[in-house]
Design a protein around this nucleic acid. Sequence first.
DNA 1: CTTGACTATTATATCGATTCCGGCAATGCT
DNA 2: AGCATTGCCGGAATCGATATAATAGTCAAG
Lengths: 332, 332
Amino acid sequence: MPVTQKDIARQLGVSRSLVSRALTGTAEAIGAHPATILRIQDTARKLGYIPNATARKLRGKGKPVIGVMIADMGDPYFSQTATEVIRQVHARGFALAVAGFDRRIVDHDDIMVLLEQDLAGLLMIGGADIPWLNLFPRRKLPVVRIGDAKREADIHHVGVDDTSGFRQLFRHLFKHGHRRIGWVTANQPVHQSRASRARIIARQVGLKWNNKHDISGGNEVLLAGREGGQRLLAASAKSLPTAVVCSSDAIALGVISVLTAGGLRVPGDLSVTGFDDLALSSLASPPLTTLHQPISDMIRNALDLLSYPSLRIIHKKFPAQLVVRASTGAAI
Amino acid sequence: MPVTQKDIARQLGVSRSLVSRALTGTAEAIGAHPATILRIQDTARKLGYIPNATARKLRGKGKPVIGVMIADMGDPYFSQTATEVIRQVHARGFALAVAGFDRRIVDHDDIMVLLEQDLAGLLMIGGADIPWLNLFPRRKLPVVRIGDAKREADIHHVGVDDTSGFRQLFRHLFKHGHRRIGWVTANQPVHQSRASRARIIARQVGLKWNNKHDISGGNEVLLAGREGGQRLLAASAKSLPTAVVCSSDAIALGVISVLTAGGLRVPGDLSVTGFDDLALSSLASPPLTTLHQPISDMIRNALDLLSYPSLRIIHKKFPAQLVVRASTGAAI
DNA sequence: CTTGACTATTATATCGATTCCGGCAATGCT
DNA sequence: AGCATTGCCGGAATCGATATAATAGTCAAG
């Protein structure tokens, strides 16, 4: 139905090859008559010709396609990351094939949808477990995983170094007189491993980890925070930690919401911190003290790895930066 | 480099046609020998064959591609909508071509990226102005715009009916004793037109529109709310409205953040409402009273329009539903 | 022994764009 | 006049998969 180069050729009585050259700008190179070139371009415009990216790609030209696998689209962090990926992939002149999931286990068919696109690279955002990835004879397909800490052979990895961030955070809390720390996290690998690292660092800095409030909510990030908040409220005032560290902003927002609804003030009675630095976190009440993930930089780096594939597998970590806002204050 | 059907055919000494039929399951239909079919499928697996979606699409098979144009990816509402679109498009077995923008004016090249994909349909999320859209001889390409109120010829439209929602909201506010209403919005067409409709309805319900606090922030949704909050704080206590209605959740969160930082309590001193019902809005402090946009339903409806194209141009509106949470209370 | 029916497979055109390899004029040169 | 050069353009192969038409072989009935 759409207008093709063939239509233009027929209309003008020239060959399809000449049409192609005229439209791609390679006609002068072989010495085509300028007037002919113009005539072709004119009728192309007149007929409303739109090049067919599919055909072009098959022929070998056409922009390389980057596949993007997004785990757990229900998580605002991934949602925000996804939009940034779209932006950057687009800006670099890549084509994009996205697949987003609500669950952490991705099956064979899911990935096939991407692989069939003849990918130039695969970006995995978040840590969906795909044990079958090595089942494919990977034809030098560069794969970059963003945001998870797990190291895998043959897979580049761009993540955050949360240890330095947590050290900054805990020093900040220590300085404000906090000694007993609670922890709220979600029941997901990333969050759990983040927790275990944080625990060690907290002790190093001199903070006491309040095991009673080492709370692990469900695997729904949006609900985990509420659950954590409720458990904190249920605790007796004496056993409360003075600060609650959360493994993501979404969790922290939920915790704060429940705590303030229960009559506690943040940071008056309790300080709360997040992780991620979502766009909305600075607009929260109170604005969230959190560890900033340099999402843009991470994605830029990941796309670099796909653009200029290196034989060596890279594991790059960006330091998470402490952003102090109003959700933390002096310990009571 | 990847394994093609040709490779399989060569390896087995059969023709490419037979390989194709064996792999697509159309081999039995023409009475191919079962053993041959199995041999082909076996070596396909052994060689790690992955079908090439590009070639398939060129031939006419392959899934139809839906183009998605997302205006203003910086807005959390669009970010959340985009993820839902990805989910649903994927679930319906469509392929997806996304293009996201940070600005409201989209140029020729931007849309070309999508159009070159030989689209089965185009989904426009948000109201980027594209005056040149009718420059293209649209080859029966169904276009659906989501979320904007503007009516255009040849373009389906799925939006929210905010009038019924605002009526619910204003009645709710009236019942709680509110009489003087302020309004904070962003400097964007959608928000502006939403404002003008709200104003009329507020009067109908018996509320006085406080012109002094008809605040229109910048065109950055994330900043508009802060600006609005600051202007409210700067006002004298006497002239303050008792409730502030915002044209989006992101704006409302910003307003609340600034107000509470300035010593006002929400909803103690001032009620604040939003629009959209973002995922994070129920986790805010206080949880946001807002008008829920049935995003999933709207997208489902939009995809229906693309799947079963109708000659008649459809303008469908989904009612925004009032969700009462804790950011609204009795007027002081 | 020829015609028809059936089985199992292959040859080939097609989708739209690109590109290498030529080919046919007209002109220039000796 | 004969031959090479230049200018301008067409033919056909290619990318990978699929669908239609055709073919080689077997067997039975007339």
